[in-house]
Write a protein that binds this DNA or RNA. Sequence first.
DNA 1: CTATTAGATGTTTTT
DNA 2: CATCTAATAG
Length: 681
Amino acid sequence: MFDDRGARSWLDGLNAQQREAATHPGDTLLILAGAGTGKTTTLCARVAWLLSEGVPAERILLLTFTRRAAREMVDRARSLAERVTPDAGRVLGGTFHSVAHRMVRVHASSLGLDAGFGVLGAGDAVDLIDFVREERGRAASHRRFPRAHTMLDIYSRVVNSQTLLADVLAESFPWCAEHRESLAEIFRDYGLRKRELGVLDLDDLLLYWRALAADERIGARMGGSFDQVLVDEYQDVNGLQVDIVRGLRAAHPGLTVVGDDFQAIYGFRAASAGHILRFPEQFPGASTITLECNYRSSAPILAVANAVAAQDQLGFPKVLWTQREGGCRPELVTPRDEAQQASEVCDRVVAAREEGMDLRLQAVLFRAGHDSDLLELELARRAIPFVKYGGLRYLDAAHVKDFIALLRLTDNPADEVSWFRLLQLCDGVGPVRARRVIEALRPPGGGPPEPARWADAAQHIPEGSLELASGLIEAMSAAGSGCAQPTGVQVERLCAAIVPMIRLRYPDGAVRAGDLDQLARSAANAEDVRHFVSELVLDPPASSADFAGPPHLDEDYLVLSTVHSAKGLEWDAVHLIGAYDGNFPSDMNAGSEEGIAEERRLFYVALTRARRRLHVYVPARYYHRPRGGDDAHGYGQASRFLTETVQRLCDATGPADRSWPAPGGVREDRLIDVSVDALFT
DNA sequence: CTATTAGATGTTTTT
DNA sequence: CATCTAATAG
């Protein structure tokens, strides 16, 4: 069928272990792949091998956990597989959530769902749950009542871990335990509301897919439609996802999972490394292959990573090694405070670039999104371009939510939550008037709002904003079901209708309007409006830069990222900032042994992203309120993961003692008064 | 009723 | 910084 050269070329460059894993003939395979050991390469090679063994492309399913990983893996697998078969594009793959979406759509009727159910993104779910709470009356708004975001976190935790609310509260949210009753009611209402609206949230997607997989008839058929299922990042699956995999494989062999228990960092989403550790028991007959040869990092960097990993006794024993010689030892920098930390990072980044290391080959990593606040200011000041991942999420921006509310309404006019949000865009309309309008939109006997009644309802809208509001409704009705226009045109029209309101509402309205234009343009090849929203929610742009137009996409930029978002990626130089105890490990997780262990794994993930240079920063003094007027600060201890053993493997750099300190590097605790007001009395 | 302001407050990580 | 509250002005 193919000549021998082409046929096995995907095995080129694999080492013995990788090759064994790629071509393992057994049905059930666990590949334990340490950081940087060529995990993705191996998995892709296995796909190619399976195809060459005659498995049809459309009978292979690739599952991952994050979008970034999914994209990379599916792309690589397909391009590699193209050497084997022209059908490679038919290999099915994506995140658990996106595949769940497809599966649930196919079987919607068996689940009592409308085939065109909508999908609620994280932000939408927060809005809905908040809406439900408001509806229950403000009585629940005692002080200390959890915020909408927190409520959703709790809910999600309950669903994903399949644990009783009371236990989840006691274990993970003790400060909310007193509100168990109210929360339970709100959560029940929330579920009811979702049914009424015909929407599923992200957790539901998994829940429904699991139900399908567990069903005797449907599950068997679904499992039977795949000869091979491959799961990446298996250390990050939770109980629901394990159930799905088991359901799919109940009657059909053909399962490969890849992962590294040392890199399990999604405990907060009810994931547990226990699943990968117990894989051999759960799937009897499974073979295990371990990859330990690291191709990414220099030996001194690996030594530090191994030393951190050795602090944890649990897990599969694994020590990374490399054949590469030389390389510099990691650097441990102890700046005076966070301001100096920022300038130290900039200094090193710039110096490395002058030595020829592009900015894109360097990254700054941190525990939490706001850890980079000061650094971002400093980078901007020095005109060093950067892109931040894991920071502000696109779908959280108010104007994007507004637009999505409009899109949802064109598809489903009964969606009260969207009405509520959209109406308040009008000048002079707050929560009260918005509710009145919604009531006026209902048919006499009660029921969901109907846009056809707008003429009546409009009297509740103040004169000044009536015109724009009516334009919006018009555009909405025109685009509604049965509209012959292509989706792209519909969405652009809706966008044009909402843009003037956005401009009026927000001080930086022009920027936001531009944002929406970009967004609307990306609807050009969407199937329909509903589809467009679902896709957007399941696969939103990672950073606003993805949309803000690639003005600097070709240019060189530094990457700023949370450690979570950095998983699976690598850079020549890595700067890990804020490595002081309380921040990393985070105080919030420092309470339990397992919490600390997870933070340690996260720390390990951060270290193992580096190829050639690794810099770890421990500011001696940090401010509790980064920009607060007060001087609340603490004196930081180095992260407990930087044990003496670890520190001995690093080169230490104290606070720089330059004759000319960096601008802003010197800061007194009091402000020097330069006011001239006294002159004008 | 809504808009505006001032002041307090917030426990991270992602699909 | 962003979001929420309370108090006040329009």
